[in-house]
Design a protein around this nucleic acid. Structure first.
Lengths: 210, 210
DNA sequence: GAGTGTGAAATTGTTCACAGCG
DNA sequence: CGCTGTGAACAATTTCACACTC
């Protein structure tokens, strides 16, 4: 398997979401055309995306929905559950903890941390996870590792938190703070930045033609 | 101004977030190197990004923080406030309505819609916006236009909602539903898909080397 | 015939390297 | 002298076109 672009991985995830719906609807075979429509791609791009990992279609027919979905789940590493820790028991954290798709797709919120004494010891949102003192982070991760961490703290705290997480053995970070985190090779950071998305829309509106 | 890549626009937004912090800290001049560090780019890329819009630096010195920020706000179309409508008074909607950065950056939540009679007439989250019947959407938009719509509905409803919004004159959609929406040219859609982000991290963990 | 699989071409985006200016 | 501005070189990604197989 040679190097695969991030954009390809993101499309695979969309194809999988579509396949799971198709399966529920009873569809057994899908074409690259149908997948493209849903994934915002072209048929050729769909086939190219799959070709990085092998060939699982039937010429003249299409792809077997069930097998393709299983193959994509395997490629995306969704074969098991992940332990996720959340840093920052604010709005983002509460929304995430309440998000059902999170646990549905194999991501279990193992612990939540904050520095605010008013929050520590309380439950997060309507969930059942109790907020812990951030000081416990290292000890907790040493006792029971987490594969993924979510940073939902203010921007100025984010880099420091990231460093502590990396030192404690976390290799994947979902970052909601509006900073580009600096991490060593082998650690992956994915950013979600709502202000940025809105500003991209604002730009599009301002420079719209047609 | 020739065509500008979306990736450039997104970086401009990050640079702006950094500049606003620098201004608060009293910094008057910033270099492409400092901006690059924060924006996850290289100094050359920062300069290139700006070059699409003109040249506002001082050779040998750097960029005047205050003026550059003003210029970026102008480029991004942040000179005025936007009226935003939200479709779907669920978790995503509540989180968004409560997000302070939203209103801080010029985006005013004008109305929220849902089809659930149990939600209509109630306030959204702890906010002061009352949930309206989705049937009112067209009449409301005709009376008072909105520039941006946020779709926070289940996937199967999203495409239909998008079509109604476009027909009602909305040109920018922030889509939280896990579907690639089909819209006519001139309409911009930005997708936020949490499951996809998590799956991209899962992929990175599975195929990690080093 | 219909739709996949894939090198090769075209396009898009990033990095380089250096001229130009304060 | 330092740092910006930018065409040119390079790299990555997407699209094309067609051979291939069911």
């Amino acid at each position: 398997m040679r190097h695969v672009a991030l954009s390809t991985v993101r499309r695979l995830s969309l194809y999988l979401q579509f396949l799971e719906e198709s399966e529920r609807a009873g569809t057994t075979t899908v074409s690259s055309r149908a997948l493209a429509e849903r994934g915002g791609a072209t048929p050729a791009q769909v086939r190219k995306d799959f070709s990085f990992f092998g060939s699982f279609g039937m010429r003249g027919v299409g792809y077997p929905a069930r097998e393709l979905a299983a193959r994509l789940r395997d490629i995306l590493g969704l074969g098991h559950r992940y332990r996720v820790v959340l840093i920052g028991a604010g709005r983002i954290g509460a929304a995430l903890a309440a998000y059902p798709g999170f646990v549905e797709r194999g991501f279990d919120l193992a612990a939540v941390y904050d520095v605010d004494p008013a929050k520590i010891g309380k439950r997060l949102g309507e969930g059942h996870v109790v907020v812990r003192d951030l000081a416990q982070l290292e000890a907790d991760l040493a006792a029971e590792a987490a594969q993924i961490a979510v940073i939902g703290t203010p921007a100025q705290a984010a880099q420091g938190i990231a460093e502590r997480l990396v030192a404690a053995g976390v290799h994947a970070i979902l970052n909601f703070a509006p900073v580009a985190l600096t991490v060593p090779p082998g650690v992956t950071v994915t950013n979600v930045n709502m202000a940025l998305e809105l500003e991209a829309l604002s730009f599009a509106l301002k420079h719209r033609r047609a």
